[in-house]
Design a protein around this nucleic acid. Sequence first.
DNA 1: GTCTATAGCTGGATAGAC
DNA 2: GTCTATCCAGCTATAGAC
Lengths: 219, 219
Amino acid sequence: MSMSRQPARSPSAEGALAILEAAESLFAEKGFDGASINDIAHRAGVSKANIFHHFTSKKGLYLAVLKRAVAHSAGILAKGPPPADPAQSDRRLKQFFSEHLDALLEQPETTRLILREVLENGSESGQSLAEGIFADYFTRLVGWVRMGQEAGWLRGGFDPALLAFTLIAVNVHFFQALPILQHLPGAGFAFDSKTFSEQIFGLLMDGAGASSNVWEEEA
Amino acid sequence: MSMSRQPARSPSAEGALAILEAAESLFAEKGFDGASINDIAHRAGVSKANIFHHFTSKKGLYLAVLKRAVAHSAGILAKGPPPADPAQSDRRLKQFFSEHLDALLEQPETTRLILREVLENGSESGQSLAEGIFADYFTRLVGWVRMGQEAGWLRGGFDPALLAFTLIAVNVHFFQALPILQHLPGAGFAFDSKTFSEQIFGLLMDGAGASSNVWEEEA
DNA sequence: GTCTATAGCTGGATAGAC
DNA sequence: GTCTATCCAGCTATAGAC
């Protein structure tokens, strides 16, 4: 019946924010089990007990962190005008592709946190949390592709969801394989995300196959 | 100076194999910190102490598991004839793409274990372990693509490593995003990996853009 | 809201019998 | 090679003063 505190949600206090930030970086680095409350308290500059004052449990803290990360991620992805104008949608798609990769690379902690959550798929509560933005995001992207097909600057005859999926897959995999790519022979593109983005987009648009027409044009 | 035991490597005993298998599945499920020696011992049907008899430490066990997974993975990927014959390389590339996805899906624990390792990139020892097969694998794949370009059934003008990367990225992301994809509106392809593979490959070959030539052909 | 102190338990790892 | 019994460090979480 008491009304003297507002636990768990709405971390208005300064301490709570420090906790959230410390927790995000540590959960992203070491995972849920690897990061201890002690670590988090120390990095946040608060006491262990204070964490349990603001958040009900370690899991509660983790969910709060995840929720904040997802919201942050969604905020970045949602920016930019809705693609109401089909005439501009071609530029928007390429722009999205590049900006999406930038967003992943600029927020590595948030990205890693969410990628971890996807990979675990044991924590059901976070799953549904993440699916919320993914569904919205993916649906919008599919819409852009379909619009491009209708406007004629993308060819028809393929499922727009396939291209949307491929765009995301390439960026996500670039992010997570980066440290390995940079040690791989022949993968020089791993050192310049800007030209990587442009070249991959071009490849996806033009295709890798020697469509007989291109031949004749050059011959 | 004693020669009465062969610790850590060459798990010839029955118990050691049970431990390795239990550990692989638990590490894949919960990660290094999430899986406890107690869990592993219980699932393997042995005592905690027996684990430390066969493996020097938890980390030693983890590395043994990872090594085994990588070897297993490499075994699968290495099978099939080397692409000595350029004339057949076009079929090989499409076949690789499909088989690669099958391998990922059929060995989900191994796949998850290695993906985790890639994502963590804090465990340096495993990093170099994994890079070994990745480098070999990737180099071979790039070779196939380049061969295709020289043979003429792939167009020139793009970095072969880009296509190799994209093929792997699409498959890996399909694997790890599968549980989410299946809840996503419009992503019906998530339920049939076979046709997914074919359609994506077609998209990558033909491209998504409306290359002006295709227009004229159909008109 | 924040702290110190501590409860209660589980983690990885070891000793030593069989 | 396998076990039981044990050590102790570290963990999450709570109690209660300020």
